[in-house]
Amino acid sequence: MLNASDTPRSDPFSAAAAATSNATGAHGSDSELQQALWAIEFQKVSKSFGAHQVLVDLDLQVRPGEKVTLIGPSGSGKTTVLRLAMTLGKPTGGDIRIFGESILFEATGKPISAGQETRIRRRCGMVFQQFNLFPHLTVLQNLILAPTTVLRQSREQAEVSALEYLRMVDLQDKALSYPSQLSGGQQQRIAIARALVMKPEILLLDEITSALDPELAGEVLDVVRGVAQQSNVSLLIVTHEMRFAREVSDRIAVFDRGRIIEEGPPDKIFGQPDSERTRSFLQSVLNH
């Protein structure tokens, strides 16, 4: 039997199929096949912090290889969606599935074991608003930390592939620098490379240009454009860069107060949105 973790990562479809054949339990095989069509699936997910409800019965799906962007006013719950997908928090209700496998429950409904969770979430990578590079390690050490400790690659092997990704973000000459010696834009490109060396099938980008000066944002977005064009990775993006969102996404979801108020291809959302709230939101950011 094929095991999901042995499948070549470059092909999300076969990985998804393997995950499905591996899954057993109460669900009928039809629904399993359907679920496997999604790289990420949020089913009626809600999340509250105390009395404050951040997400309300959210349903959201991302196909393998699809590029989806979440837009909306700040505080509408977009970042929470990414954090929940990355298991950086637990939803208050509902279920989240990565390639058909729940990151919360076993088929029997019991909470999932820590080991299982780690195995499933390994297919996701994330880039943060504040870069979160490790300041005490050089760029190269930042990139090989996870491959050597998690994937148990040898140092040499990890360094070869790290340098490859550094070349991709055009920073191969900074391998021995510390993050503090780089500009914000360079740091964020390193953070993207650090996520990519783990060969994620889903990449979550959380406001990756918000902490940067406008003139540095461009170089980071260029890197993401490159990733979007060249690889089959699914992207789930939260951003305030509307032009970038329009250009890179296959689909846009507009958030407001913890719900998706409108969803569709970028041309439709930016061209003739259905919802009045979408229109007023876009007006406020585009006139800005």
Binding site: L88, T118, R121, R122, M126, F128, T149, V150, A195
Partner: peptide, 19 residues
């Protein structure tokens, strides 16, 4: 954010503490 980044990279708790 440092432990968040480790979590996102799949690094175990013990390793992320140590390294």
């Amino acid at each position: 954010g440092q432990t968040d980044a480790c979590h996102a990279l799949g690094v175990s708790k013990i390793q992320s503490f140590r390294k």
